[in-house]
Structure formats: C-alpha cells, structure tokens
Design a protein around this nucleic acid. Structure first.
Length: 301
DNA sequence: AAATGGTTCAACCGCACAATG
DNA sequence: CCATTGTGCGGTTGAACCATT
C-alpha cells in the first residue's frame, strides 16, 4: 500500500549548513538568521499551500517572506514542486514508467527534468533517485560502470526486454488492453489492437536482435551475463511508514467536504486536487497504459 | 536486544542562466 | 552594458528506516 504522505519526524533544524550564496543575497533584507532548514513541518506545509492557493506560485523569495515562512524561496519552491503540488504522483514506479526512464535516459543521459516531462506527476528528483538507487545499484552489483558499454548492453538486451515482457504479461491479464510485442532486426514493435509503437521513435539507437530478445523472454530474470538481475519493479517504493490517516485525520472533515488547518477551511470543490493529494491512491497504479505510450510516441516525433 | 551496515529519498548545495531594473 | 535577483538543474548529503548479525 502506498501513501501520499511520508512522515514528519522533526520539528527542528537538522542541518546547519551554510546558506546558498544566492539565497543569502536574496535574503539580505530579511533576517536570514531565522532561516529554517531541514524537514518541513505540517504547519509549514499548510502555510505554503494556503499561500499558493490564495496568491499563486512563483517569485519564491518574496512568497516565502509574505507567507511568513522562515525558509528560503528555493526551499519553498522545491517543497511545492516535489511534494505539495497537487499533481505529484507518489508510489510505485510502474513498469511502463521504468521502461520510459531507461529509454529516455539512454537517449538524453542525466537530463532528469527533461525525462520527468514525459512522466506526468513524477519529479526530476524522484527519477534521479530511482536511477541512482535502482539502476546504479545494479551496475554496482554487476561490477561495471553505469556508463560502460557492458552495462548499457545489459540494460538494452536484458533489462528492457524483461520490462517489455512484463508489461506484455500484465496486459494479457487485461483482455481489454492486450499488448503484443514483436521484434525486428532493428527495433521492438509494441502493438495493441491496430496501434503500433515503434521503439525506434523513442530511442533511435536501441536495437534488439532476435537472439537477444528471444533468449530473455524465456529465461526470466536469469541472464547470460552470469549475474542475477533483480526484478526492479518488485522492490521499489514499498516503504511508506506513515498512514495517510496520520495526516488526513488532522485535515479532512468527517464529511470529506472540507479540510482545515489553523482555522482556515478549504472547500473541497475548489481545492479537490489538494485533497486528492491525501486521498487518492488509485491514481498511482496503471496510469501509463499503452495508449499513453502511443501519445508519448506522437509527442516525441 | 543491541549493534552494525546498507538503502531510501527529501532536502540541500553550487552553479548556470534568465529576468529585471 | 552591468549588477542584482530569481529560477532551474544536476549532484550530493544525511536522517530515518530496514535488514542482518
């Protein structure tokens, strides 16, 4: 079970790092000695959400000041974009998302924000973390550099086909959206009904040979490199220690129509996206279907 | 039960660039 | 132009969590 809100554990400073030079400049007229760092509290989150709901986002330094937050503008921006923003998706990275990340990274490298543009609701930070904690970890276990040809081959010939296989397998359990995967000498073609996805449109230099692809589709996670490739999709993002109720009980009215903090009530009809932040777990699963992949293909063309 | 080591991910930093005046 | 301020990005950190001993 995934939850939208993680835990709040600290109400004080965790870090006493020096302040970013730009932030220092930006806050010279403020009292930067009061600047707070470290984890955001529930109160701070609602102050920020309140302020943005009323005044919009942007101009983060002045926003931080006028909202009364003892934070840098940068910190407010980051908190909003990576966490509080209503359309931030949380929870498991789906198979389709994993496939996209691998493909787009092979095309653009560490252009996290660019990659994130193609994964709605995912932040560059989250994708970067996924890459570092999952993909780089695999490279480490294979005892090869993440940028080496050896590892890239492993990605292309083993990992990605395995993902495609799993996507196909999961689609087979849904008879309304069956996916077929065919391979040519040059690329993989994913189809559902009359639609076609040609992976060459996504990653021009990613080719799969018949031999490589067929071998991986029949040997599951075993592979010819001699090292076990763990199944990334099974162990990611499983630890969300705080129940959503721990947060929601504070905020959501018994009817679910309003939530409130500090005496300010929010009309669910006008801020339903914010409530969705706490309530909607269902959105997270199967968001990317084959039609979305087709849409992506069109966008990339 | 306690210690230790590994993992995760939110938050930070420094820098580059854009916008503004 | 130049200086200042604001924004965005990629890399890095470290507290909390988890697994193992």
């Amino acid at each position: 079970m995934d939850h939208h809100y993680h835990q709040y554990v600290e109400f004080g400073l965790k870090r006493e790092d020096s302040i970013d030079s730009n932030d220092r400049k930006g806050d010279e007229n403020n009292n930067n000695l009061d600047l707070k760092r470290g984890s955001w509290t529930v109160e701070e989150d609602f102050t920020l959400m309140n302020h943005i709901a009323l005044h919009g986002e942007g101009r983060w330094n002045s926003l931080a000041r006028s909202a009364g937050l003892k934070r840098t503008g940068k910190s407010c921006r980051l908190r909003w974009l990576n966490y509080l923003r209503p359309d931030v998706r949380r929870g498991n990275i789906t198979l389709e998302e994993q496939l996209l990340i691998l493909q787009l990274h092979s095309r653009w490298g560490n252009r996290w924000s660019k990659i994130a543009q193609y994964l709605p609701g995912r932040t560059d930070n989250e994708i970067k973390n996924y890459w570092r904690t999952r993909v780089q970890k695999q490279a480490k276990q294979l005892k090869c550099d993440v940028n080496s040809k050896e590892f890239k081959d492993t990605l292309h010939y083993l990992w990605i086909p395995r993902l495609v296989e799993r996507i196909q397998a999961s689609s087979n359990s849904n008879s309304n959206n069956q996916v077929n995967v065919q391979q040519t000498n040059d690329n993989i073609i994913i189809t559902n009904n009359n639609n076609i996805i040609n992976n060459n449109n996504i990653v021009p230099n990613m080719n799969f040979t018949q031999e490589n692809y067929s071998s991986t589709t029949t040997t599951s996670s075993e592979n010819s490199v001699g090292t076990q490739i763990s199944d990334m999709s099974d162990n990611c993002y499983t630890n969300y220690p705080l129940n959503q109720g721990d947060y929601g009980e504070i905020l959501i009215s018994p009817t679910g129509d309003y939530f409130q903090h500090g005496g300010i009530f929010y009309d669910n009809n006008h801020h339903q996206n914010m409530n969705q932040l706490f309530l909607d777990d269902n959105v997270c699963d199967n968001m990317w279907n084959i039609d979305d992949m087709l849409f992506l293909q069109q966008q990339l063309n």
